[in-house]
Design a binder for these strands. Structure first.
Lengths: 357, 357
DNA sequence: CTGAAAGCGCTTACAG
DNA sequence: CTGAAAGCGCTTACAG
């Protein structure tokens, strides 16, 4: 047993020199070698039970924590993952898509569950982000999140892969695409919501959101809508699709563009909830009643979707599951196991914005 | 000048052994010593311009990045800050207050501006978070964010301070409080919004949100409301205050509680936008027209505030400035400079929910 | 302007 | 079960 006073003395010395305790300090105090302290702390089975207890007690009193920089340097891995948001630069950067924020929450939690830390960074598509975090050994792997212009970022994904950097991407899993993607079934979501609208008697469904290969998620959602229209024997007109990216303002603008075109429509499907909510505002300003004259639907089921008026029908993505899958897939890669891209199912959250009466 | 082939050879060797380039590799290739590489890379003025260029060229071709673990270990600081969210545990953890998320964005940006990385972690109040990140040298300092129960977390702040850990907190700066706080002028915000409501002819303003010392921000907002009522010669009744924490559901529940009490009111002031939006739903369900019968106001100006119906009047906090101030204050502490707590002004964002006609 | 040397605090074979 | 030794990849006095 070590005298309390020895530790107290140590503490006061330490306090004056302003340094943190190291494993060597503990070794001195416990009367063992430094490697033994390291073993005891890491729970190695080949250390005497009494010795371990003594060491742990001292470590606790000293508020000792293993220096991550030293252990990472030694073991050559960091125990942290980096989350990179890549988004088109927006003028108001503070407005992050709530959907991603909900992903952020679930990713953080999944990391914590596995004992990993999360480094986070918002990237402009314009900056040269690809490998920074991995190359400088700040993180063992990358999680990429963002509805950016896919074609623009694709080159970078290829670079990442060339450099042997481990990463997973949230988004549509496309054939021949570099790396592993986890995404929701955008096609199914688009299809099911359109089918629902059709079942509610809607015939002319406008789609607000990009529908090009640059934005594969939105494009898939749009394809789902078209498929549902086809199945019902309805036409899809180009004039009923208006480009929009995921923000209220963009949705508002897109709805006004739609109105200005003068084409008839009885439903508006926003490619994201933010778009839908922005569109609702424009529609109301134009004197249209929701859902009587126009049904409105969104995609994501952000927390506020149920609290706007009328409550927004939307396609729900299971962010909790998504976060887990992303982290799991990345961790599996780090452990050298092969991983496949995955698509997770969506469900409809039907509310007042698509139901009359 | 070094032969391209040497580098190519190096690359293929490296590729086969699957390791990253180190400064020593570069030194060999450049025909200099390893310390010289380190100096060149760090922009030391005492290295020959030609040598530097040669080194930088090679470094670039090899995708070399300084190993952060090694340099951090050597220099004893990490170049990263940790952002700790502490919130009361919520059943649905994915629903993070959008206001904080907007802070997150601006904090990330401020960190990047100063060349710091951001480690992020969501903490339950119940877990033992205080010093982990700093003790294990993962971060140089902590940013604490959260509308948790203040009295519960105060003990921990004191511990942090005892251990000499640098931190800043977002929230009300109270007398005798440990550490540095940056917060908005909650009293002013509460006061100004209440004064606005009174100017609009409202006389009985309900306040939804905790108003105890456990939640100093909300309490200050409430005090501001009371002050405005006093100034106008109006009474404030206890029955017009209902506890709520910051979520739509809690706001919804609080409004229903208020309705159930049967007291008269002509305005509802939510202590946060989420509360206000939840309350709007409950009020509408009760058949009340907003703003004709009840004006509704919130606090935070989250991105969606302008897109609910009617658009929500609210108190705007400048999250961009807040993020900068938090990071600046923390960095100043790290540089050994004294910092004071600061309060930043708020402005009203007045919209349809408080204006008739 | 450049190099040889030391050391940051760990972990992990290697002996015993 | 424990210790002496080496080394992860840097940075920074110290010589020259």
């Amino acid at each position: 047993m070590i005298a309390r006073t020895a530790i107290q003395a140590w503490c006061s010395v330490q306090h004056s020199i302003k340094g943190k305790a190291t494993s060597l300090d503990i070794a001195h105090l416990a009367g063992v070698s430094q490697p033994t302290v390291s073993r005891a702390l890491r729970g190695s089975p080949m250390v005497n039970e009494d010795t371990r207890r003594r060491i742990l007690a001292i470590a606790e009193q000293l508020h000792y924590k293993v220096d991550k920089n030293a252990s990472n340097l030694r073991t050559q891995h960091t125990g942290t993952l980096a989350l990179l948001f890549f988004e088109d630069p927006t003028p108001d950067e503070s407005a992050i898509n709530p959907f991603f924020l909900s992903m952020l929450g679930s990713i953080t939690r999944a990391c914590a569950l596995h004992g990993y830390d999360l480094l986070i960074s918002f990237q402009n598509l314009s900056t040269d982000w690809q490998a920074d975090y991995a190359d400088s050994k700040k993180a063992d792997g990358l999680i990429l999140l963002g509805y950016g212009d896919y074609l623009q970022s694709r080159v970078r994904l290829e670079k990442l892969q060339q450099q042997g950097i481990r990463f997973v991407r949230w988004g549509a899993a496309l054939p021949g695409q570099p790396g592993v993607s986890i995404g929701c079934d955008n096609f199914q979501g688009g299809h099911d919501m359109a089918a629902h609208l059709i079942a509610q008697g809607r015939r002319r469904i406008a789609f607000l959101g990009h529908a090009s290969a640059h934005y594969p998620e939105f494009q898939e959602r749009h394809r789902g809508v078209c498929a549902a229209l086809d199945a019902a024997g309805l036409q899809h007109e180009a004039a009923l699709q208006v480009d929009a990216e995921t923000s209220e303002q963009s949705g508002y603008d897109a709805a006004r563009t739609l109105l200005a075109r003068g084409v008839a429509f009885d439903a508006v499907f926003g490619a994201s909830d933010l778009i839908a909510i922005g569109a609702m505002k424009a529609l109301r300003e134009a004197g249209l009643r929701i859902p009587e004259q126009v049904a409105v639907a969104g995609f994501d089921d952000i927390p506020l979707a149920g609290f706007v008026t009328p409550a927004l029908s939307t396609v729900q993505q299971d962010t909790r599951q998504a976060g887990m899958l992303l982290v799991d897939a990345l961790l599996q890669q780090l452990h050298g196991q092969p991983v496949d891209s995955q698509t997770i199912p969506v469900t409809l959250a039907l509310r007042g914005s698509t139901h009359c009466g």
